[in-house]
């Protein structure tokens, strides 16, 4: 088995970017770090700096104002990098869908690998999304 691929699957470090949501999803992201769910079991650590991280946990609506910052932060991450869009807002714009300032989903701005639906998604759903991302990594790419 490819040792680099093994290492990549076993240690996906995450960092958290709020594009402008209501903080519901952010609380759920933080809840997946607490003792009850503890994503460190899968080797995921929450890092502060985008330079250190492999996976971006993107929450909230992507507005026209945040777009440039989001792209800049995304470009600051080192390859290989992945994006998880968490919550309805990051997936499709959610209830703000037809608003003049809102993009209908983060994938209009940056490439997204995994979508986690919910408003807000439960921590179990976030962990499930992370596992799906790891399976995608294991399958190929």
């Amino acid at each position: 088995m490819d040792i680099i691929k093994w290492a990549r699957i076993k240690s996906p470090w995450v960092f958290h970017f709020n594009a402008g949501g209501c903080n519901g999803c952010d609380i759920e992201v933080l809840a997946s770090l607490i003792p009850r769910y503890d994503i460190e079991r899968f080797g995921m650590i929450l890092r502060g700096s985008p330079r250190h991280a492999d996976v971006m946990l993107l929450t909230g609506t992507v507005t026209r104002q945040i777009k440039d910052r989001l792209i800049r932060i995304y470009e600051q991450m080192a390859e290989p990098k992945f994006v998880m869009a968490i919550g309805s807002c990051a997936m499709s714009g959610g209830v703000f869908q037809n608003c003049y300032s809102v993009y209908e989903g983060a994938d209009k701005v940056i490439p997204v690998d995994v979508y986690v639906p919910g408003c807000p998604p439960r921590p179990q759903a976030i962990i499930d999304g992370a596992v799906k991302l790891l399976q995608k990594l294991a399958a190929g790419k």
Partner: peptide, 10 residues
């Protein structure tokens, strides 16, 4: 795993 992953990163 962390060490190898970081070595292989950009």
């Amino acid at each position: 795993a962390d060490f190898i992953k970081l070595l292989a990163k950009e």
